[in-house]
Nucleic acid binder design. Sequence first.
DNA 1: ATACTGTGTATACGACATATACACAGTTAG
DNA 2: CTAACTGTGTATATGTCGTATACACAGTAT
Lengths: 121, 121
Amino acid sequence: MHLVISLKSNQPIYEQLFEQIASQILSGELHPGELLPSIRSVAKDLGISIITIKKAWELLEEKRFIFTKQGVGCFVTKFEPKKLKNKKRSEVLERLSNDLKFYKQLGLSLEELLSLIREEY
Amino acid sequence: MHLVISLKSNQPIYEQLFEQIASQILSGELHPGELLPSIRSVAKDLGISIITIKKAWELLEEKRFIFTKQGVGCFVTKFEPKKLKNKKRSEVLERLSNDLKFYKQLGLSLEELLSLIREEY
DNA sequence: ATACTGTGTATACGACATATACACAGTTAG
DNA sequence: CTAACTGTGTATATGTCGTATACACAGTAT
């Protein structure tokens, strides 16, 4: 598991962590049932507070990406491939829908948007 | 000019206002040279603080969407059509690029993303 | 001169993000 | 059984941010 944080970013640290782990789970980099490193060791490695890691992990657990066992640690949830795909979809949609609203307001056509994305992706 | 704010949204009020006005400018709803209502009247109409409006206007001015004349008011900047198009593009890109980063991390293919957008737009 | 405009400053409050510290409960390995 | 690990909960603190009200000043227009 590979994590990086930027202190310059607008995005709070815990959200950055959430995103990285969620995407590693959804992309298959982190495997179902896999044990995540302890919040203490991640905090130490990244040089940040345990509380911040805890918050990221809580978000992950809230959205069922992981489950935790007190005294043991935090595990990647086991999803069926179909469930995984749905989850991926809903994470994207969650982020996308506000953006699409904005683009529509701007008067951006679907074709314009698609072509922009083709260029940038 | 039509503005609405949601107190429930995660997005700060000043940002909501910025987006609405920027998009109204970029979509042609607000015309070049047009005078915006005074920060005091908008604040009164929306039932919020002048400082909040001021912040939104400052953001708009920072990004050259408007210019202000002390004692007079705030005016929509005059853009050449080409410049307007570029500005629209860069507003979209600014928002899009972090999102695309996330989608890539998720292992979402371009085709998957495009098809999702086609469904939702 | 009056009523409007934007600008600047001050103060205040609540929410949020993040920090350190400590104690407790649970688990695991030696 | 003990020590070292794990997560959980609580406390306190600080800085930043968003937003509020209030006031004064400078500029503009009628």
